[in-house]
């Protein structure tokens, strides 16, 4: 009967653990995503939306990087696996200036000539629990000043003219990420579908 007792105790402890952790699990499932993970590997502007299609079309010739004036385009090495030699931009290190040279020089259809407003590298997302003006730690506005697309991409909040708010016109070039003076980078580029552009959420 020793085995039976052991099994009963095992089942009981499993049930207890489940009962105790269930509320935590449910609360995790119901909680809204606070901040989508920032992407530090953006594709160059004009890249095919489907990343698998992009990898299939890119031959890794490096022409996009060779014409890039700010030299922001880098290439995946071993860590990229089968993304080897395909281009990416890390806006934390160096951001795209939307000069559109890379898409013009690309010999394949991996990068396509796209008007500036239609580029989709992602969208900026501000962590309002860290951004200096949002936590009343000063007036910064670096992201709004640097933005190459102006107030249609990022603007100050109507009711507090120091707090930056991302607008739907943002194409995700990442200039704001590069310029952000906060050490923890409370602004980052996320996928457009995960971005929050509701301007006056309280």
């Amino acid at each position: 009967m020793q085995r039976r007792g052991f099994l009963v105790r095992l089942a009981a402890s499993a049930a207890t653990t489940a009962a105790v952790t269930l509320p935590y699990g449910i609360s995790r499932l119901l909680a809204p995503p606070v901040l989508a993970a920032a992407r530090t590997h953006l594709r160059p502007p004009g890249a095919l939306a489907d990343d698998r299609a992009f990898v299939a079309a890119c031959i890794g010739c490096g022409l996009c990087a060779e014409v890039c004036p700010p030299r922001c385009i880098r290439f995946f090495q071993r860590e990229g696996g089968d993304l080897l030699n395909t281009p990416y931009i890390n806006p934390e290190a160096k951001a795209c200036i939307l000069c559109n040279k890379c898409m013009q020089v690309c010999p394949t259809a991996a990068l396509n000539v796209t008007p500036r407003e239609d580029i989709d590298m992602g969208i900026a997302q501000i962590d309002r629990s860290a951004c200096y003006p949002w936590v009343d730690r000063g007036i910064c506005g670096a992201c709004v000043s640097i933005c190459p697309l102006g107030p249609k991409a990022i603007d100050f909040a109507l009711w507090n003219q120091y707090r930056p708010v991302v607008q739907s016109g943002c194409v995700g070039c990442g200039q704001c990420v590069e310029v952000c003076p906060h050490p923890s980078l409370p602004i980052g580029i996320v996928e457009r579908s995960r971005g929050t552009v509701t301007p006056h959420r309280i």
Binding site: V55, C58, T86
Partner: peptide, 16 residues
Amino acid sequence: GAVLVAGVYPPAIVGR
């Protein structure tokens, strides 16, 4: 679904 031959082709490697 990736141009793997580019990774083992010496002239492409040297230029890159």
